[in-house]
């Protein structure tokens, strides 16, 4: 356990000293502020455009902005935030393969499973932390300006999207075990998301897929009941476990 913690600590130090963590914190905080800010500014922006829009025949009358507008922005921006997170952390394994830094670590007798676990846990902790940083900033401003009461299951919707992100990260870890460069990791992860998206076009399959968890606005507006998400959530948790187990097996067999 002590040896695991030592490697886990090294991962945190690396995130910190390479400046990656700071950049991510700033970006996620900015996203968090932007979501309610854009919602708040929408009426004003449209007002300033109304003159020219009236000329082309569009008349803006009454623009209703509420908590849901803010949350719409949140869920629109989340894929971009997740993409940035994946891009910035996709080399967490491959950079070490390429530099050869793991060779010395392994020859010190540290078990491969501990290396993988420390890296996976780092991804999980940092992603969850950043996600909730963004979430609570949006939540705070939204509650301050509007009435959050009109949105249903706010916390649950956010938690399910978080779970989708964790699934993406588990795919990333799985791709990292055999890959030699982070382009392979990115292609593999992108391919998996695309595959899930294409499968989701089949109406019978869609409710079982991780991507189903990203229909957060339907939960907030009440179009979907929380129970409808149960199957997708269960499958996603199963897939995360399977991805991690497969990653462990592949990582054990990898030559370094």
């Amino acid at each position: 356990m002590k040896t695991f913690y030592a490697f886990f600590k090294k991962e945190q130090l690396e995130m910190l000293r390479t400046g990656r963590l700071l950049v991510l914190i700033i970006l996620f905080a900015l996203f968090g502020i932007m979501n309610p800010a854009i919602a708040k500014l929408t009426p004003w922006m449209l007002q300033s455009l109304s003159g020219s829009m009236a000329e082309s025949g569009i008349i803006i009358t009454n623009i209703a902005v509420n908590a849901l507008t803010s949350w719409t922005q949140f869920y629109k921006n989340l894929p971009i935030a997740l993409l940035i997170f994946v891009l910035m952390t996709s080399a967490i394994f491959t950079a070490e393969y390429q530099k050869g830094t793991l060779v010395l670590v392994l020859t010190k007798g540290l078990k491969r499973t501990k290396i993988l676990a420390a890296k996976a846990l780092t991804l999980l902790v940092v992603w969850t932390g950043l996600y909730y940083l963004c979430y609570f900033i949006t939540l705070g401003y939204t509650a301050f300006y509007w009435d959050n009461g009109i949105a249903q299951h706010v916390g649950l919707a956010a938690g399910l999207y978080l779970l989708f992100g964790i699934w993406v990260l588990s795919v990333m870890v799985l791709c990292s075990a055999p890959a030699s460069a982070n382009t392979g990791v990115l292609l593999g992860t992108g391919g998996a998301v695309l595959a899930v998206y294409l499968l989701g076009l089949l109406p019978n399959v869609a409710p079982y897929l991780p991507l189903y968890l990203t229909q957060s606005m339907s939960l907030l507006t009440g179009t979907l009941a929380p129970g409808a998400m149960a199957r997708a959530a269960g499958v996603t948790v199963g897939l995360i476990a399977a991805n991690t187990a497969a990653a462990v097996l592949l990582f054990q067999k990898r030559s370094l």
């Binding site: 690396e14 530099k99 830094t101």
Partner: peptide, 11 residues
């Protein structure tokens, strides 16, 4: 073990 080109965590 000392590899031919030892690589460390540069940070």
């Amino acid at each position: 073990y000392l590899p031919d080109v030892p690589e460390f965590y540069s940070f």
